[in-house]
């Protein structure tokens, strides 16, 4: 029972973090809020038997990705969004759509969990499974490692190609200026490149040079 209560607590906290990210004007506040969500989710993963995933969630998401985001926010020295942040026609479509969606899903989840049906239909044939008993070593590094290099080795390798592409893309996109600047003998040209709009306009030539 306690574990259930904690579960609800973590999930509610995750949702609260999401709301915070959505609502807070300053990007740093939003980022920290999202960080909270991710940590809560890591706890939820752990309670769901996915210990390795919980660890990855903390290391990769909270540790790497969010730090990168926060770093960029600070690097670009971004302030709060102005008051126009929410004053848009998008609000009039987005908020009602979200409300309707959430309320419908809530009703569905409620009925499903309670074992009642809003009305008989196809969904009822799926049923709400009781949690299965976990096999030995479920979610451990060893068993997941075996899966990754066994059954799922091809997707695993393809993922590495994806990572490589991401790295190349990121380097290409940000490295254009420094490549151009290197040609001028200035190795530490980042600040200069940022400040110099004209340099950025002339970037394609440098980009090609880099690609070559």
């Amino acid at each position: 029972m306690t574990s259930s209560a904690f579960m609800y607590l973590f999930l509610a906290a995750a949702v609260a973090g999401g709301v915070g990210m959505l609502a807070l004007r300053h990007p740093i506040h939003a980022a920290v809020s999202l960080l909270g969500t991710m940590l809560c989710l890591a706890a939820a993963y752990a309670m769901l038997g996915a210990h390795l995933m919980a660890v990855f969630q903390v290391i990769i998401y909270a540790g790497a990705i969010m730090v990168l985001v926060v770093y960029i926010i600070m690097l670009l020295d971004l302030g709060s969004d102005d008051a126009r942040a929410f004053r848009s026609v998008k609000v009039f479509v987005g908020i009602p759509a979200a409300t309707v969606l959430v309320s419908v899903l809530a009703r569905l989840a409620w009925h499903r969990a309670a074992g009642t049906e809003p009305r008989p239909g196809l969904l009822s044939s799926i049923g709400d499974p009781a949690a299965a008993a976990l096999p030995e070593g479920f979610g451990t590094v060893a068993s997941i490692g075996r899966d990754l290099l066994g059954r799922y080795v091809v997707p695993f390798e393809v993922t590495s190609v994806l990572l490589l592409a991401g790295i190349v893309g990121a380097v290409y996109l940000t490295g254009r200026d420094s490549a151009g600047l290197k040609a001028q003998g200035n190795a530490v040209g980042e600040g200069k490149g940022t400040g110099d709009g004209g340099q950025a306009e002339g970037a394609p030539a440098g980009g090609e040079e880099f690609a070559a």
Binding site: M53, P129, A132, A133, G139, I144, D147, Y152, F156
Partner: peptide
């Protein structure tokens, strides 16, 4: 993954 005891979800 937890409810069906299937590790594919983790992967």
């Amino acid at each position: 993954s937890r409810y069906f005891a299937d590790q594919a979800g983790h992967v």
